[in-house]
Nucleic acid binder design. Structure first.
Length: 475
RNA sequence: GUCCCCAUCGUCUAGAGGCCUAGGACUCCACCCUUUCAAGGUGGCGACACGGGUUCGAAUCCCGUUGGGGAUGCCA
């Protein structure tokens, strides 16, 4: 039997980190088994579902590289089908009308709680004559669930979990206005879509017992379930906005790479021995639900960032230039042929020092900005009177260097330092600041080689004369 | 309250009775490299929640305690 899984978010907000991880696990499972990964938008809550959220979810999944098979299914469009199933269950006596009001329900729950029992609907209308129904209440349809015995779920992650049926009540299938509830819609859709494995957050585990009862009532074999542990915030509580639980696009905007995001997310709850740095291709080969743990994990930005640094270095120079170009433009610089050539030449030195695309764009700016370049606030003090004199002195020496190579430049600089009797360190930092505008940069001679003689001499002159570009956001 | 789940370094985790004086990764610290910062290399700090069993032997199995989480909707 071939595997069919789905990711079924409700479009009431952005694609958050937990949803992204659930989608990833489903995707990994499908791809590793040669199965299908379907997408279903659970938009049955009309008040909270928005088109904007739907678009955000598509965007998020596409950015993450989680391609789905076929067209997305919109759950609300299938409401009539869901209602039909409810009617069928009614006609078979497996479901019934219930006229209990919200107030009555609340009273039932309060009573049960007060008596130390599980709060639940007490089955008032389960066997009562519908002729007794109040005229001013629109009835809901409830499942006639078994009241004795127990329901067991064989979960790929949680193992065998059993709950007494007395603990479960007769769930609502159709609301008073005739629209289907989540419980009904999910089960009907999963059945109709031929879903073989339901992989979702642990918070759905208790729903599963009820859903299994519904499958039984419908005469359909339930899929295999796999409830993956939730992701918590740094304080151990359920990840929420308070923790900065952001949409996946926020991580993109921080300069994270999708492959880094996948790598980080797949390791939350899943492992393959010692492996930490795992490519997506490797994960598809290795992914195995039996290696999914049962305990929740916490979101750790530092580890994500560290993984991002790794995957950043794996990217080609051209890829990275393409990705930071918009960021560089946002800083107010354009990328002309010279700038592009410099970035291509200097990217290896740049990317080893950066952990995110945003850092990379910032670190790369000095290669493309026009003279006089900006000098960062904390770098200005390096260019004191003595330093400026040294720069003025070395500029002509560099102008005389014939072979503009890193080795020749280093030789020239060291020779000059020796001649004027200063340690090379005294010379290096002013040079760095003059050429890059910062106290931190790739290797000095690499920078010189990339910039070219004319630009280097001109920047040294700028610095010697105290010319400083407009200070923007840089510091 | 009730039901369900969970419990190894600060964090992510390896570990499926002896290979464990518990391994890796992130973080932190030190050293090496070095023109800065990274990267890289080497080393260090750092955990089996607690209490009972079972067993020749338990991080691994069982029970309890404690702690955490989830669910308890005519939301999904």
């Amino acid at each position: 039997m071939s595997v069919v899984v789905r990711f079924a978010p409700s479009p009431t907000g952005y694609l958050h980190i937990g949803g992204a991880r659930t989608a990833l696990f489903n995707w990994l499972f499908a791809r590793s088994k040669g199965g299908k990964f379907l997408l279903r938008i659970e938009d049955t809550d009309r008040a909270r579902s928005t088109d904007d959220a739907i678009e955000k979810i598509f965007e998020g999944l596409r950015w993450l590289g989680l391609d789905w098979d076929g067209e997305p299914v919109f759950q609300f469009a299938r409401a009539a089908r869901h209602a039909d199933i409810a009617q069928m269950l009614m006609s078979e006596g497996k479901a019934y009308h219930c006229w209990s009001t919200q107030e009555e329900l609340e009273a039932m729950r309060a009573k049960a709680r007060a008596e130390g029992r599980q709060p639940r609907y007490d089955g008032t209308w389960r066997d009562r004559d519908p002729a007794l129904a109040p005229k001013d209440v629109k009835p809901v349809v409830r499942l006639r669930a078994p009241q004795t015995g127990e329901t067991t779920v064989h979960d790929m992650v949680q193992g065998e979990v059993t709950v007494p049926n007395a603990q479960l009540d007769d769930m609502v299938l159709l609301r008073g206005d005739g629209t289907p509830t989540y419980m009904l819609s999910v089960v009907v859709d999963d059945a109709d879509m031929g879903i073989t494995h339901v992989i979702r957050g642990d918070d759905h585990l208790t729903n599963t017992f009820r859903q299994v009862q519904l499958y039984r009532a419908m005469g359909v074999e339930p899929p295999v379930f796999g409830h993956i542990p939730l992701i918590h915030g740094p304080d151990g509580a359920k990840l929420s906005k308070r923790h900065g639980a952001l949409g996946i696009e926020a991580y993109r905007d921080m300069g994270m790479l999708p492959e880094a995001m996948r790598n980080y997310l797949m390791r939350l709850g899943w492992s393959h021995g010692d492996a930490d740095v795992i490519s997506t291709e490797q994960a598809v080969q290795w992914f195995d639900m039996s290696q999914v743990g049962r305990s929740p994990s916490r979101f750790d930005m530092q580890k994500l960032t560290s993984l991002n640094a790794h995957w950043l270095r794996e990217r080609s120079e051209e890829d990275l230039i393409g990705m930071i170009e918009p960021l560089i433009q946002a800083e107010g610089f354009s990328l002309d042929a010279t700038g592009h050539r410099r970035l291509a030449a200097g990217m290896a030195g740049l990317k080893a020092r950066c952990r995110t695309l945003n850092e990379l764009a910032e670190a790369a700016a000095f290669y493309v900005e026009p003279r006089p370049i900006r000098i960062a606030n904390d770098a200005v003090k390096i260019l004191d009177e003595a330093a400026r004199q040294r720069l003025a002195a070395i500029a002509p020496k560099l102008a005389d260097v014939e072979e503009w190579s890193e080795a020749a430049l280093e030789a020239a600089c060291r020779q000059h330092a020796e001649q004027v009797g200063v340690g090379f360190g005294k010379l290096a930092q002013p040079l760095r600041v003059a050429l890059t505008g910062s106290t931190v940069s790739p290797g000095l001679f690499e920078v010189m080689a990339v910039l070219g003689k004319d630009e280097v001499v001109a920047r040294l002159d700028d610095a010697a004369q105290g010319r400083n570009g407009e200070k923007k956001a840089r510091q």
